[in-house]
Design a protein around this nucleic acid. Sequence first.
DNA 1: TATGAATGAGCTTTCATTCAT
DNA 2: AATGAATGAAAGCTCATTCAT
Lengths: 220, 220, 220, 220
Amino acid sequence: MARRATSGGSAGGGTEPGAATGSGASGSGTTGAVPERLLAEATRLFAEHGYDRTSVQEIVEAAGVTKGALYHYFGSKDDLLHEIYGRVLRLQTERLDAIATRPTPVTERIAEAAADVVVTSIQNLDDTKIFFRSMHQLSPEKQKAVRAERRRYHETFRALVEEGQRDGRFRPEPRPDLVVDFFFGSVHHLGTWYHADGPLTAEQVAAEFSDLLLHSLLRP
Amino acid sequence: MARRATSGGSAGGGTEPGAATGSGASGSGTTGAVPERLLAEATRLFAEHGYDRTSVQEIVEAAGVTKGALYHYFGSKDDLLHEIYGRVLRLQTERLDAIATRPTPVTERIAEAAADVVVTSIQNLDDTKIFFRSMHQLSPEKQKAVRAERRRYHETFRALVEEGQRDGRFRPEPRPDLVVDFFFGSVHHLGTWYHADGPLTAEQVAAEFSDLLLHSLLRP
Amino acid sequence: MARRATSGGSAGGGTEPGAATGSGASGSGTTGAVPERLLAEATRLFAEHGYDRTSVQEIVEAAGVTKGALYHYFGSKDDLLHEIYGRVLRLQTERLDAIATRPTPVTERIAEAAADVVVTSIQNLDDTKIFFRSMHQLSPEKQKAVRAERRRYHETFRALVEEGQRDGRFRPEPRPDLVVDFFFGSVHHLGTWYHADGPLTAEQVAAEFSDLLLHSLLRP
Amino acid sequence: MARRATSGGSAGGGTEPGAATGSGASGSGTTGAVPERLLAEATRLFAEHGYDRTSVQEIVEAAGVTKGALYHYFGSKDDLLHEIYGRVLRLQTERLDAIATRPTPVTERIAEAAADVVVTSIQNLDDTKIFFRSMHQLSPEKQKAVRAERRRYHETFRALVEEGQRDGRFRPEPRPDLVVDFFFGSVHHLGTWYHADGPLTAEQVAAEFSDLLLHSLLRP
DNA sequence: TATGAATGAGCTTTCATTCAT
DNA sequence: AATGAATGAAAGCTCATTCAT
C-alpha cells in the first residue's frame, strides 16, 4: 500500500531544524519541491481545521498538485500526519539531548531545556496544535511509535529532575514523573491560547514558564 | 430547526454534580432515560475515539435507540458535544465559585481550588479528554459560548492569584494570566496520561499538582 | 390507515365558496377550527415551497397544533393535498356549471366562463400554483380521481366551444379539445407570473384573457 | 466546492440542437459518455416522477454508474437540474432569435416562432414537463439565472407582438406582455396532456396553436 | 380530542483510495 | 512523475407515520 516515504524516513528531503512551519510562514502555493509543499500545506490545514476535517482534496489543491501526486509520495493521509509528528519529534529530541548533556549545573540545564521547548513549540505552533489534538487519529501502530519516541523525550527530561533532587538543589517531595506531566501539559496547551500577534513574545513566555517550573522545584 | 433540549438546558433531567461519567462508568445499554443514556454513551465514545471518528450510528447503537430518537432530543451531533461541555463547565464553575468565596486565607483557597479541579477532572476524565481535543469541532458559535464560559472560570482563578500577589504572600513577578494558562494546561492534559488503574489516586495527583502550583507562586 | 375525512368529504366543516385562501389572506396561527387551520397553512406552505419540501412538522407548527392532531383529522399528508384539490375543483365546477346553463348567447357564456375562471384562479392563487405543480405527487388513485373531475370540467367548457361552432358564431377550424387545452394552459400558469401587488387587477387580466380567447374563436 | 461541469458549460460534449430527449428516447443504460448518460437519465426520471421524488440513487442506477461518478461531474443534484434547464433554454433561444430576425412580415415570423416553440417543446417533452414543474426546486440563485434567461426569451417574443401592433396588422388592444404570458402558459402545459402516441402530431398542434394565437391578435 | 416520543427507511453528499494511462 | 475518472462505503440528517397515554 504505502509506496514511498513513510514513517521514519523523511519524504524527499530533510526538514532542517529551525525551519518554522508556524503561523505566518506558510508559502501558499507552488514554490519548492512537491513533498515539502504537501507537508507544509497539510500542517497548516490540520492545525486550522483538524485532521478529520481536512480532506485530501483540500491539501492537494492548496499545494497545487493532484491527488495522484500526493499518493505518489505518501502512502496515505495517515502517513502525512505521521511525517509531521516525526519532524517535530526529531527536532525537539535533538535540542533536548544537546542541552541535557551540557557541563553546566542541573538548575541551569533544566531552565534552558524548559525555555527552549517553549520557544520551539511556539515557533512551530501548528505542529504543537496538531500534536495533542490528533494523536488518536493516527493508526494504532504509528501511535505506538510516536508515543515511544515521546516517552524517550520525557525520560530525558525526568532524569534532569531526578538529578536536581539527588544533588539537593530541588525539593525531594515532587515525584519526577508528575513534574514532567505537569510541565508538558502546560507546554502542549500553548497552542490553545498563544497568538503570535498577542502581547507576549515566545521568549517572554519561555522565561516565565521556565521560572514557574524552577520555583516549583527549588528548595525555598 | 433545533428541536429540543440543547445547550443551556439539561436534556430531560438534571445532571447532579458529582455524577461521574468517567472512564469506569460506562453503563452499556438500556437503563435510565433516553437523553441521559445518549449523553453518557456519546461521552464515552467521544473520549475513546474522538468526536469525528464517532458516528451517530455508533452512539445510538450503544444507547439502544434509533437515530430518530437521538434527533428528537438533540438538534445535531454538535449539540451533543455542546451539552457535554455545558455539563462539565457548570460543575466546575459552581465548585470554583464556592471555594473562591470562602473566608479563608488566599493561599488555602487557591490550594483547594487547584486540588479540587484536579480531582473532578479525574473523576470526569472522559469529559476532560473531550474538552481539549474536540473544542475546534464545535460549531463556531458554540465554541464562542464555551470559550466565554471558560474565560469566566479562568478569571475567577486569576483573581485568586492576583489577590495573593497583592497581599504579599505570592511573588510579584509571575503574570497572573500566564499562571492560569500554565496550570490549566497541566490540568487539561490529565486525560492524556492518567489512568484510574495506575499507581496514583486522584487525590494524590491533586495534592502534588496543588503543591507544585503553590511553590511556584509563594515567596521563597 | 385513513382515519377520518378523506377524499370527497370535507374535513370537519365546509369550505364556503368564496373563502379566499390566496396570498395575503392567511391567518397565521391559532384562530378557527383545527382542520381548517391545517388546510390553510398547508395550502400556503405547499404553494410557497412545494409539496415535497413542506414537512408535516412545518404544517403543524404553522397551525399551532401537534402532529397527533393532524393525523387525527387527516389520514396522511397526501390527504391534505387531495382535500385542497377537492376544494378548488368543487368551487370551479360549481361556478362553471352555473354559467354554462344560463339562457344567454354562447359567446357571452364562454366569455364569462373564461373571465370567471381567471378571477377565481387569481383569488385562490395558492391553490392554482399547487394544482399544476403537485398533481404528480398525489397517490395514483387520487390522481385518477382528480383527473376525472378535471375532465368533467374541461368537457363542460369544450361543449361551449362546440356549441359556438355549431351555431356559426365561431370559426369551424379549431379543434375544441385543443382550444380547451390552449386556454387552460394559460390559466394554470397564472401562478407563475401574476402578483397581487403588480400593475394588473384580477379583473383586468380576466378581461384580456377572455378577449384573447374570444378573438381566437370568432369568425373574422 | 462545485467540482466540474455545471451551469453554462456543457458537461463533456455539446448537446446538438435537435437531439431529442423526449419521452420515447430513453436509452436505458451504458452507451455514450458518462455525463451525457447521467443527464439523459436524470431528464427522463425527473419528468416521470418529479425532481424531489427522484433519488440520486435511481439516477446513477439508470445510468449504470456509481454516485461517486455523478458527483465527480456534477456538484449536486441541483446542478443536474440546472444543466437540463440550460440545455433547453439555449436551444429555444437560438431558434427564436433566428426566426425573429428573418426579413419576412411580422405576421409570418410570429406564426413561425409560435409553431416552432410548440414543435421543439413536444420534441423535448421531458424538458418541458420538468421546466414548469421543478423551477421552484432549484436553488434561489440558479432560479434567478434561469428566470433572467427566460425573460430575455419572452422579451424577444413580446417585441414581435409590439411590432405587429405598431405596423397595424395586429389589434392594438391586447397588452403585449399579457399575450406572451397567455401563449407560453399554453406551451408550457403541453407536457400535461400531449402524448406522442395520441391522435395529433407535433406539427398539427403547432399549426393549431399558432393559428389560435394569430387570430387572437389580427384585426378582424 | 390530542400529545409527543420513537421508529425505520431513506435522503444527499463526502471521502480516501485505486488504477489505467 | 503525475493525472483524474471512478469506486464503494459511510456519514449526518430528515421525515411521514405510529401508538401508548
